[in-house]
Amino acid sequence: MEDLRQISSKLQNTNNKNILVDFYGNEDAGIYAINDEVAIVQSADFITPVVDDPYIYGQIAAANSISDIYAMGGDAISAINLLMWDKCNIPQELIQGILEGGLSKIQEAGAALLGGHTIADSEQKYGLSVNGIINPKKIWRNNTAKIGDVIILTKPIGLGILTTALKANKLESNTIEKISKIMSELNLKSKNIAQNYKISACTDITGFGLLGHLLEMTTKNTSLEIYSNNIPLIEESIIFAKKGIIPGGSYANKEAIHNKCNFNLAQDSIFRELDILLFDAQTSGGLALAINENEANKLIQHLKDEGIECANVISKVVENKESKLNIL
């Protein structure tokens, strides 16, 4: 995460008044205004296989890519396949399954597949370049949460640990089915519901882990209190975290931001022993929605009524403290 910031800080964009969001922040997508009412939202992402079933892998990769559009408050309208094909080990019929899985999620999002680009690679990867549209006056940024807001999370964490356990052939079929459903679920419903409320800021929880993405939601004037007991967590991830089955990316996330964190956990908190769960690198995680505390319960009930059962307040935005993330 820090390496990317250093690299991008050396890039200089042209002075263009139509650029509303670009690479200078840590936003989930870029935004370019067409006129006063319409702007383009653009992003790209791809991942290595996280499950064995090619169709479900394609669904997860597509949902993960499209999520960046939703994190900005936009609607996906078109996509381009990005396929890195390990031809020596992955036969054509499996590639067909991956692309069909991706297409199913593109269509579920109400978008169109316009084409794609394929290259040979020794490691299989798949994802999308996605275009969306948004009203320029209704953009969700990730760092505009206000003091007194709370942050609602819409999917549970623990996916990185469990996909690592899956690669090691440690998961039972019911757990594989559970995490596949979570990762392949579009954040479309959560985004659509949240647009009925005044959202101050939003991001989606992916490779930087929960705490990494929450850190991006702070500013020089704000810190976060994080209520660890409220964080939705896939229970099976605890078992494998205790066994040390943890992806390298989760350790890298912890190393990158541990100095921004202050842990003041209860004696019985699972995170006293397993704080790595809070840094766990996620694939196709949920939205983190900042909203005024007085409106939060309404939004949570609305989400739950529509099937987003784990939605919960996990954090509060407070005045700047010595530590940006204060985990309670």
Rank of each mutant, 00 (worst) to 15 (best):
313 V>Y: 08
107 Q>P: 00
219 T>N: 09
65 S>P: 05
11 L>E: 07
286 G>D: 02
292 N>E: 14
184 S>R: 12
189 K>D: 08
262 N>P: 00
142 N>H: 13
128 L>R: 02
264 N>T: 14
73 G>C: 04
133 I>N: 01
4 L>H: 09
1 M>P: 03
243 K>H: 00
223 S>T: 09
88 C>G: 10
1 M>L: 09
210 L>W: 13
314 I>D: 10
9 S>A: 15
238 I>C: 02
258 H>T: 09
175 T>I: 15
258 H>P: 01
183 M>Y: 09
286 G>S: 05
152 I>L: 04
120 A>Y: 13
287 L>T: 10
259 N>D: 15
203 T>M: 03
98 I>S: 04
146 K>I: 15
318 V>K: 08
315 S>K: 00
253 N>C: 06
171 L>R: 12
47 I>G: 04
30 G>R: 03
87 K>R: 14
227 Y>M: 11
181 K>S: 14
271 F>G: 04
280 D>F: 01
77 I>W: 02
219 T>P: 09
47 I>R: 10
290 A>I: 00
245 I>D: 08
215 L>M: 10
299 L>N: 03
119 I>D: 14
83 L>T: 06
61 A>V: 03
306 E>T: 05
270 I>G: 01
48 T>C: 07
219 T>A: 11
78 S>E: 14
183 M>V: 11
177 E>M: 08
183 M>I: 12
52 D>H: 08
238 I>V: 12
45 D>F: 11
327 I>E: 05
138 K>C: 08
192 N>H: 07
6 Q>S: 12
228 S>D: 14
179 I>Q: 03
93 E>Q: 12
41 V>T: 12
321 K>T: 05
195 Q>S: 15
15 N>P: 02
33 A>Y: 00
56 I>H: 07
311 A>Q: 05
53 D>P: 04
230 N>K: 15
84 M>N: 12
289 L>G: 03
241 A>I: 04
143 N>A: 08
290 A>G: 11
123 E>M: 12
154 T>M: 09
177 E>Q: 13
237 S>G: 08
251 Y>G: 03
161 I>N: 06
42 Q>D: 07
56 I>K: 12
73 G>T: 04
303 L>C: 00
62 A>F: 05
220 K>W: 05
283 T>V: 15
83 L>F: 01
42 Q>R: 06
20 L>C: 07
161 I>F: 10
67 S>N: 14
237 S>R: 07
69 I>C: 07
47 I>N: 09
93 E>D: 15
113 L>W: 01
297 N>P: 01
277 L>A: 05
57 Y>V: 03
136 P>G: 01
120 A>P: 06
279 F>A: 08
320 N>S: 14
95 I>G: 00
301 Q>T: 11
51 V>G: 01
302 H>G: 00
150 V>F: 02
93 E>F: 14
289 L>Y: 06
261 C>Q: 03
131 N>F: 15
223 S>M: 13
135 N>L: 04
289 L>S: 03
180 S>G: 14
125 K>N: 13
83 L>V: 09
24 Y>E: 12
310 C>P: 00
118 T>C: 12
141 R>M: 13
260 K>D: 03
179 I>F: 06
167 K>F: 04
234 I>R: 01
17 K>V: 04
289 L>Q: 05
211 L>H: 08
229 N>V: 06
270 I>M: 03
